[in-house]
Simulated assay, not measured.
Amino acid sequence: MKVRVEIDNELTDKEIVIKTPHYDAQVAALYQSVQKSFGQHQPLVFYKGASEYYLDLSEILFFETDGRQVLAHTSHDQYVIHHRLYELEELLTGRFARISKSAIINLDQIYALTHSLSSTVVRFQNSPKRVYVSRRYYKALKDRLERRR
């Protein structure tokens, strides 16, 4: 991989371009790393009733689907968000992880994982809310939590 810096006095803002013959896991990781480093993500707007809310992502416990809507849960409230889960999964890298086909969780908000023969439940501190981890995503979640220690 080559790394190059070009100075262009005509530019008004910094620009990073990744040139590659094909998109692979290494390019995806590099792209996500650059986005995370510079905080480049579109601001998320949350809705409740007729009001729009701009919440800090650290307040979000998890996102889940309910019918055709995607809900963002905080410790004592829930909001509608006009993104699909797969879009949120791409936007929210780092501290968020997919735990089922219908949920994405904030790893910083996990208080406890309760594993039984039939399911794994995630509990949150200072909140009665709980969410289930599917068997398919359990190992990836466990690995991410181990790496964060």
Rank of each mutant, 00 (worst) to 15 (best):
D66K: 14
V5W: 09
Y86E: 09
D108L: 01
L117Q: 11
I99F: 04
V3R: 03
I7N: 05
Y53N: 02
I7V: 14
D24R: 00
Y138V: 02
R147T: 06
P21A: 11
H73C: 10
T12P: 01
T12D: 13
V45Q: 09
V17N: 05
E59K: 05
H115M: 06
T12K: 15
E15S: 05
S127E: 04
L117F: 11
N9A: 15
A112F: 13
L117W: 06
R130T: 15
V131C: 07
T12Q: 12
S102E: 10
D66R: 12
A112G: 04
H115P: 01
A72K: 06
R144I: 03
T12R: 14
Q32W: 10
I16Q: 04
Q32P: 07
Q26A: 10
L61P: 14
I81S: 04
A97R: 03
A103W: 02
V5L: 12
Q125L: 12
V34H: 01
E10Y: 08
E59Y: 04
D56R: 08
V34S: 02
A50P: 08
I18R: 04
K19N: 13
S33L: 13
R136Q: 13
H41F: 10
A103K: 02
E10D: 11
T120Y: 02
I60H: 06
S75R: 14
V45S: 10
E90K: 13
H22R: 11
E64G: 04
E15M: 11
R144W: 01
A25H: 12
M1T: 08
I110W: 00
P21H: 14
E89R: 00
P21N: 13
A112C: 09
S37A: 15
V3W: 03
G94R: 06
V17C: 07
N9G: 14
Q40H: 12
T93W: 02
R95V: 04
L91T: 03
G49E: 03
L11Y: 08
K2L: 05
P43F: 04
F46E: 01
R135M: 08
R123G: 12
A97Y: 00
Q69N: 13
Y111L: 13
Q35Y: 01
L113H: 02
R135Q: 09
Q69W: 09
K139T: 15
Y132P: 00
